Structure formats: C-alpha cells, structure tokens
Amino acid sequence: MHNNLASWIISFIKGMFIGSGAILPGVSGGALAAVFGIYEKLIQFISNIKKDFLYNILYFLPVGLGSLFGIVILARPIESLLVNHPVYILLFFMGCIFGTVPLLYAQAGIHGRTIKHLVLTILTAVISFILLVSANVFLDIQVAQTTFTWILVGMIFAFGFIVPGLSPSNFLIYMNLYEPLTGAIGDLNFSILIPVSFGIVLCVIIFSKLINHLMNLYYTTIFHFILGIVIASTVIIFPTMEQFSALTISEIIFAFILAALGLCLGLWMGKLETKYKSED
C-alpha cells in the first residue's frame, strides 16, 4: 500500500512537471515524458487504446491529473514568474531536466548503442540548438485568432507530446498566441479551450500509430535523437544576460541554488524511477 501511494504521488509529480513543462517556453512535454520514462508507454497506449485498457487508465490517471494540475493551475503562476522572475523558474527547470537526463541516457541504450548513436545525439543537439536560436531571432508571425487557428494550436500542443523535443510554447510565441492561450487556460475560456482540445485529440488519433510503429522499428535511434533534442531544448532556455543583469548578486546565487535543487530533484526522481522499474 505504501509503495502504491508513493508510486501514485511520484506519477502525479511527473505529470505536473510534464504539464507545466508543456506551457513553459523552450520545454517539451513529450521530452519530459521521455525523461520520466512515460513516453514509450503513453505512445503504446494511445496507439492501441483497447489493449490493457483498465491497467493503462489506472497507470496514467495520476500522470493525467498531475498534467492537468500543471497546465490549468500553474499556467498563470508560470506566466507570472516568466514575466517577473524568469531566471528563477528557467534555472529550476533546467536543473530538473538535466537531473533526469542520466535516466533518459540509460533508457536510450537499453537495447545497446554504438558510436553512431552517440554521434547522432551530438549532431542532433548542435543542429537543434542552431535552429532554436534562429527561430527565436527571426520568427515573429501575427496569426488571426479563429476557431481553425485554435484547432491548429491544439495539434501543435499535442505534437509537443508525440514528438519529444518539440516545444509547442515556442511555436505559439512565434505566432503571438502564447499569452492568449495561457490566459484562456487561466480564465477557463471554453470558446478557445474546446477547439484546442479537439485539435489535440485529432493530432493524437492521426499520428500516434505512426510514432508507435517507428518506435518499434528504430527504438535506439529515436531515443538517441530525443536525447539530443532534450539537451538542446534545455540549454536554449538558459536565461539571457539581460535577464541576469536585472538581478543582484544574492538573487543570482539564489537562482543557482534553485538550479541545484532542481538538479537534485531530477536525480532523485530518476533514482526512484529506476527503483520502481527494478521492483516491477
């Protein structure tokens, strides 16, 4: 019973990070799902929903509740922190993600790895970083807010889970739709949330089977590719010099303490994940 409760709480916390990460610019909900050892099971579940239905529902219930909490309850606080204290929240998330990277690295090599896979990870990280920097500098598009637009936003949001490393929040910022979406989440504006939800479901139905098929064929390659994207998309959220310049020395020290706490939390969660896998 104790183990079940502990496992439930850990799954809820993972879901909370995945949900809040999905709305944090530069962070991918799918990448965090991969980091926390949930991604593969999630893709298998949504691509063949009838298989082990009850078991999967019970397994993903705390993850789903945690994700909902992370998206709905934390949307406004995260938006506020990004405006008022960006260095604190960005460094904390960086610490959390890097703390769980060793687990993702181990998972990527569970079926073995070669030098080619490590080279793929490095190249993916470098190319992804360059593309992300370029997008941050050059992309700024004004998109009309229509029902079709919000369905498209839902599909982009879902892609952030189905394709690890893809940060939906970044795309929404480039399209100037990030603040309207987080505002709609905080205000429970269903005229926006309903088409967004429809887009999420549509994307999952269309692409989940394809991703699951590719995972079965190219597991090691895909996970090393994901690892490279996770590294790049985590490094890219490092605060700018302008953001640091607004802080005092003591505030900067506190920010790096938060990063260290995030790192410890990530490492702890990684160890717990390994422990529960070994017990299973």
Rank of each mutant, 00 (worst) to 15 (best):
A106C: 10
H111T: 08
T114G: 06
T114R: 14
I115C: 11
K116V: 14
H117K: 07
L118Y: 14
L120C: 06
L123P: 01
T124D: 07
A125E: 09
A125W: 09
I130V: 15
I130N: 10
L131S: 12
L132E: 10
L132H: 12
V143G: 03
A144Q: 11
A144D: 12
T146S: 11
T149S: 06
W150P: 00
I151H: 01
G154S: 03
G154T: 01
M155E: 03
M155Y: 01
I156P: 01
F157Y: 09
A158V: 04
A158G: 02
F159N: 02
F159K: 00
F161D: 00
F161M: 00
L166I: 10
N170E: 06
N170A: 14
N170W: 07
Y174N: 04
M175G: 03
N176Y: 07
L177C: 02
Y178W: 12
E179C: 00
P180Q: 06
L181P: 00
T182G: 00
G183P: 00
G183C: 01
G183Y: 03
G186R: 06
L188W: 12
L188T: 13
I192N: 04
L193A: 13
I194P: 00
I194F: 09
S197P: 02
F198P: 02
F198W: 10
C203F: 11
I206V: 15
F207A: 13
S208H: 04
S208P: 04
K209Q: 13
I211K: 12
I211M: 08
I211C: 06
H213T: 15
H213Y: 15
M215G: 05
N216L: 14
N216H: 15
L217T: 13
L217A: 15
L217N: 15
Y219V: 11
F223E: 04
F225S: 07
I226H: 08
V230A: 08
I231L: 14
I231A: 06
